[in-house]
Amino acid sequence: MKIVMLSGGPGRRVWPLSDTSMPKQYLPVLDGPGGEPESMVQRMWRQLLAADLSESASVATSSEQAGLIKRQLGMHVPLLAEPAQRGSYSAALLAASYYYSVAGVSPHETIIMLPVDMYVSGDFFHCIRSLPKLLRESEAPVMMVGMAAEYPGTRYGYILADQAELGEESGSYDWKVNDCREKPGEQEAEELVKAGALWNSGVYAIRLDFLLGRLSNAALPVDYEELYKQYYQLPKLSLEDGLACDASVEKTVIRYDGLWVNLNTWRTLSERIAMP
């Protein structure tokens, strides 16, 4: 298993608190374990360390943000620097080419894409550990992690699965994804919640050979150095648009029932800001 912590976004959604010079993921506004403030990046990396997963992890970020990462996490944190911001889907493809052609990782390896703007407890990383085995057993190239939708929010992605209710009575742990909707309007969000749709956590377990195949199908090189040079030819797409909402991609989903908060709005971030 290889974990890619996604931290290359512009982080402007909580402007004016954040801007392009200080994206939201680097703002030291969360309570650290000793009461000291920490950023989203610092919190996620600390949790990976505590879960003994940091040796499997790298941080994907744009080259402009590499200095911020090193100042907050240390000079030796493994970085996968993108030459430009082209979205999490292109970041995943670049990471795949690096692992395969530079690091020599087996094409049968599982790549976990982990967004940095999540607020989770340590239990969440038990879920992360289970993903490679579950992905192999599912025989699908992509596995998603969903959460029970607490309300019809319009800033979330939604996952419709075969067993939309995902209740305790089901003997299966993962379900085939029938459809995904990204940030719907209010009425559609209400309909999705009534239909038992899950919120999309933004966490993906993906077979490395599948990502390499996406590069080949797009006539792009799987060699890292060559792909890096041609990075501007990759689409500006999120993983949601590039994979989750692509009906041609077979996907399964598991449900996580612990603490999970998406820190992508003023509302959710303000509830977690450290108070003086």
Rank of each mutant, 00 (worst) to 15 (best):
V203N: 07
S88M: 07
G185V: 12
L53G: 12
P115N: 08
V41G: 04
A189L: 14
G202S: 03
V29W: 12
L166S: 08
M22W: 09
R12K: 13
Y151F: 15
G146W: 14
A149R: 11
G171M: 06
M75Q: 15
F125D: 06
Y156P: 00
E165W: 07
G11F: 13
D174I: 05
D31G: 04
M118L: 15
Q230D: 09
N262Q: 11
L68F: 13
A218Q: 09
S121V: 00
W199D: 06
G87P: 11
L259S: 06
G196A: 12
V142L: 08
N200G: 08
S7M: 11
K251C: 01
T268Y: 06
H76T: 12
K251G: 00
E182P: 01
L160F: 05
T61Y: 03
E64Q: 13
V145W: 04
L269M: 15
G74M: 09
V77F: 07
L17F: 14
D52L: 05
G258V: 02
P83D: 09
A103G: 01
S62T: 15
S130E: 14
A218P: 01
T252K: 14
L269Y: 13
I128K: 00
I206E: 01
E271A: 15
A60W: 06
M1R: 04
K183Q: 12
T252W: 06
A103C: 13
E38R: 08
A60M: 10
L234T: 04
S106C: 10
A161L: 08
I206D: 00
L93F: 09
L94H: 08
Y156W: 15
V14P: 01
E150S: 14
Y26D: 06
P107D: 14
L79F: 12
K70Y: 12
P184N: 11
S58G: 01
E240R: 09
S7I: 01
W45D: 04
L80R: 13
R12L: 13
G146R: 11
V193W: 02
G213H: 04
G213V: 02
V105P: 00
E190P: 00
